[in-house]
Design a binder for these strands. Structure first.
Lengths: 183, 183
DNA sequence: CAGACAACCGGACCGCCGGTCCGCATAGCC
DNA sequence: GGCTATGCGGACCGGCGGTCCGGTTGTCTG
């Protein structure tokens, strides 16, 4: 990749973030992103393939730290902790991530609306949660329950809950739900 | 409403259903619906206001029987049964409804993507589930749990589960999840 | 039955969007 | 300094949801 290509790639990602923060997920078209990045529309598509690809990449970037933490021993998130604690810790982290990136979550949802299960980040999360649920509650359909738990972070739902009680309410509702489910 | 208006209204609803059944939710544009109904596009919008309105109305139609059953004593669905049984019965009915109307669920989801909580049918369902959860598990955030339970009927998830085990698998996964949650 | 009016219809039209394409520019290498 | 592959920009496309208005038609009245 040429140096200018790398620069443009970064400019596009940052422009997309700014527009998300400024105008909400619904008003971020790729024309606008391109314009804000000081770049042609074609460049956006060459770099990211599609709208879907752009938001997937953006989410992957924001989720990277969490992805690493999951595989690293030493916190309740990592291997070594009991599955129930790991799962609760993971969901709590996810709540934080959703809070800090609500507009991105919304945009990502829309962009991945068809074939939402193909998104790499979602797939990783789902695999993780499925495994943990399988250990903690072997009687359940773990994959199904994992989709349901990840569904708690639907952007509209998160927004609604946070409007009433902020991230604290979100965290406690999620935790309460997960604890009830795990028994 | 004039007689021709009533006829057209019905023709549009039936055409939309046929198109949903024939091609999936993604390929049903309002032009196509209008053409299939033998009607101008303007007529579709005059009758239903928007794409959203059309699919909301269609879902409301299909959900009417369930809505009545909920308020009528005499089955596990209706008032008089214990909340836990009512909730499980309701979710089971919803699974059946989702199975029989998968394409409609998908189209409805897309059409209501912004402001999904404004859909009248969803609001009714959510109120019902919230009340039942509140009785069965007063320790939970009932409204939040209700959204989560209704999220189980996301069209993509339903489709995926049914691809693996048909409606039987869907019903048992839903039931298992709900039972675990209610303890 | 005739006439008149309101309700309704059709489809051309609009702006916007995601996505494509190709002639031109330039970064990076010899 | 010159050559080429890589990348760039933005005009362009098809399709969408939604609007609008000139013409049509159901219906009510006398």
């Amino acid at each position: 990749m040429r140096a200018d290509a790398t620069r443009n790639r970064e400019a596009i990602l940052r422009a997309a973030e700014e527009l998300l923060a400024a105008h909400g997920a619904e008003h971020v078209s790729l024309d606008r992103v391109a314009a804000a990045a000081g770049v042609g529309k074609g460049t956006v598509f060459r770099r990211f393939g599609s709208r879907t690809g752009l938001f997937q990449e953006l989410l992957a970037e924001r989720a990277e730290a969490l992805a690493r933490a999951i595989d690293t021993a030493g916190s309740p998130l990592g291997p070594g902790s009991p599955p129930r604690a790991r799962l609760l810790a993971f969901l709590d982290e996810l709540a934080g991530l959703a809070e800090r990136n609500l507009a991105l979550f919304a945009a990502h949802e829309r962009a991945c609306a068809d074939d939402k299960y193909a998104d790499p980040t979602y797939v990783r999360w789902h695999g993780h949660v499925t495994a943990l649920v399988g250990e903690a509650r072997p009687d359940l359909d773990a994959s199904f329950a994992a989709h349901a738990l990840l569904g708690l972070f639907d952007a509209d739902l998160v927004g609604r809950v946070m409007a009433e009680g902020g991230v604290t309410r979100l965290r406690s509702s999620v935790r309460g739900f997960a604890e009830a489910l795990l028994g």
